[in-house]
Amino acid sequence: MIELKNITKKYEVNKNNTVIALNEVSLKINSGEVVVLKGASGSGKSTILSLIAALSKPTSGEVIVDNRRISKLMDNFATDFRRDNIGFVFQKYNLIPSLSVAQNIILPLVPTNPDEKDVETKLNEVLEMFHIKDKKDILVKNLSGGEQQRAAIARANINNPDIILADEPTANLDEKLSLHFIEIVKELKEQGKTVVIATHDPLFFNLDFVDLEIEIFQGSIVI
C-alpha cells in the first residue's frame, strides 16, 4: 500500500522565490490498484510520483510504501528501494539514445552485477511481454516514439517491481499508440501490479479497470 500523509513539497527557485508544488496532500493507494492522477501541467502530479519513487523528499509529511517510511530513507537506501520496488516510465522516456534497446532495458540490473543467464532470461521476458524483441539490438535513437515507450516500459519492468509509476506516458504518442499503452496498463494490473499514472490525457478518464481517479489542482487534491 502507498500512503501519503500531509505532504507538502516546496521548490526553491531562488532565494526570494519558492514554489509550493504540493500543499498538505494525503492519499492512500491499495496494492494492485490502478490510479490516475489528473490535472493540468504544473499541478503537482509529477511531484507526487517523484515522492512515491523516493526521487525527492517532501518538505514536510510522510510517504509510506508497504509500511516503510521512504521519505526518511537515506540516499543509497532510497535508491535500493526504488530499484527493487518501483518501475518508472518517464514522460520523455529518458532512455540513453546511443545504447541499444537491450542495453537500455538492462540498465537497472547493472549495479547488482547480475549473472549473464539471469540477465538474458529477464530481458527476453520483458522483450516478449512488451513486443519489442525484434528491436532488441537497434539503437534507441532510431526507434519511433511508440517503440521508445515500449522500451521504457520494459526497462521499468525488468526488475519485476510491484509498483509502476508513469508520468504523462502518452504525451508524445498518437491516439493508436496511446490506446496500446492503455492495454499494457491493463495487462500490468492483471499481473497484480500497482500502477499510478499522472496524465492530463482524456483517454485515461473513466476507464473501467481504473480503480481511482484523483484530480490535482495547484498542489492540492480536488476530488
Partner: peptide
C-alpha cells in the same frame, strides 16, 4: 547531468 539523474532514478547508487 541528466544521464546521472536517469541512472539514479532507475536504481543506480552514487557509488555505482
Amino acid at each position: 547531468k541528466k544521464e546521472i539523474g536517469i541512472l539514479k532514478a532507475i536504481g543506480w547508487r552514487i557509488e555505482d
